[in-house]
Amino acid sequence: MKITDLLNQLNEQLNFIDLEIDDTIIKCEKAIEIILKSLENLKKHVQKRQFKSQDEEIHFFKDLKPQFVSKLIYYNKIYKIETKKPHGGQRVVKKYYKLELHKLKLFFDNELEFYRYFRTGNNYLDYKYFVRGKFDIKFSLDSFYFESDTNFVTAHSFKVSKIMAHDLLQVFLEDKLLEMKNNIQTGKSQVNPKIKQIWTASKVSLVELLYALHSEGVFNNGASDLKDIASYLEYMFDINLGQYHRAFLEIRMRKGDRTKFITSLKENLIKRMDNTDDS
């Protein structure tokens, strides 16, 4: 439960940063700082206790720890990609992002055997891959393993983290390329409101509302895709919702009231109705 709490706390903090900070480089800097602190707490927790069984140790290094480390790899890689991004037209930047995607493909090709093992849910080699001190040089270990604290790393726990991080990186790069492809100025409405409405609540609240509206099917008789509704809300409020899919996952994992914003809307509307009745 302690590790789960640490992970939930980390996810909430990263989700807040992802939604509230638009500058990618600053976002990555803040995220890396938070993840390093979280990993430090995780390491202290592991040092204080002993695993009750080999299965528990495997579960930690195969399933739990990579969820922390993968985030560090992910944000660090994005930071490097964005700080090294060439200055130039869309053609130059597009070529740059495609090259980064190609590097990911090379990684997956080089790790194909282990990638298949991990993705297909195999476990017959877990006792070598995810138990401390049980390394085999024949399994093409990363140099990182030999430089690490052997009490907090196994032969392949870092590889799992890289696979998880690279899956996210692939989505990030593909989104960047799609964004460039769709970067066409849309015509403004012929009837423009005199006062622009700016969303001043949190982005998390707007994501909660976005999913509620989509679930209710209020646009185009329920035929509108979630992505289309998100784009519309971003255009209307001149706001960037970022990776709203991940934000929704964090909303789902909330303890207590998972629909805080919608609950607040309901309570305040009822209060207004009651006040109107009294007057």
Rank of each mutant, 00 (worst) to 15 (best):
K65I: 08
R272M: 02
S157E: 02
I73S: 02
I25K: 15
V204C: 03
E56V: 07
D225C: 02
W199A: 08
E147H: 06
S205H: 07
L42Q: 09
Y96V: 02
Y129F: 15
R116M: 08
R119W: 01
M180H: 12
R91H: 03
G256P: 01
E216F: 10
K48V: 00
I73Y: 13
Y96W: 06
K162A: 14
D23F: 08
Y117G: 10
V131F: 06
V153M: 12
R258E: 11
F68C: 05
L19F: 02
I17S: 04
F61M: 07
N192G: 07
Q54M: 07
L249S: 15
I21M: 04
E179V: 00
K48H: 09
K203N: 15
L7Q: 06
F118Q: 10
K52N: 11
N151F: 06
N122L: 09
L209Y: 07
G88W: 07
R272V: 00
I26G: 00
M164I: 05
L10I: 06
T186L: 14
K94C: 03
Y117K: 10
E113H: 11
A165D: 02
Q170P: 00
E216C: 06
F114Y: 14
I270R: 05
S279V: 02
S53Y: 01
K80I: 00
F16V: 03
F158N: 15
I34T: 15
S143F: 05
L210N: 03
V69S: 03
D175I: 01
N221W: 10
S224G: 05
E234G: 07
E147A: 14
T120N: 14
Q47C: 06
R252L: 10
D22V: 12
T150Q: 13
P66A: 11
D228T: 12
S148A: 15
K80C: 00
S231L: 00
E147R: 10
N183S: 14
I81Q: 08
L213W: 05
S215Q: 09
Q185F: 05
S157V: 00
E33W: 08
K65G: 12
F172L: 02
S70T: 02
L39M: 15
Q54I: 08
F60N: 10
I262E: 03
I58R: 11
F146D: 05
E57T: 11
H166W: 01
E100R: 15
E40T: 14
K203P: 04
N275R: 11
A223E: 13
S161N: 04
L106G: 11
A230D: 00
L6G: 09
A247N: 09
E33R: 15
R272K: 06
K77A: 11
Y127A: 11
L206V: 08
D167H: 12
R119A: 14
P66K: 08
S279T: 02
L112C: 06
L101Q: 14
G88Y: 08
F107E: 03
Y232E: 03
D63C: 13
K271W: 01
A223H: 13
I73W: 04
Q54N: 10
K77L: 01
K105A: 14
L206R: 05
R116A: 11
S224L: 04
K98A: 03
H87C: 10
R246D: 01
G217D: 04
G187P: 02
L178T: 13
Q54S: 12
A230P: 01
Y117V: 08
L10S: 06
K65L: 14
Y75H: 13
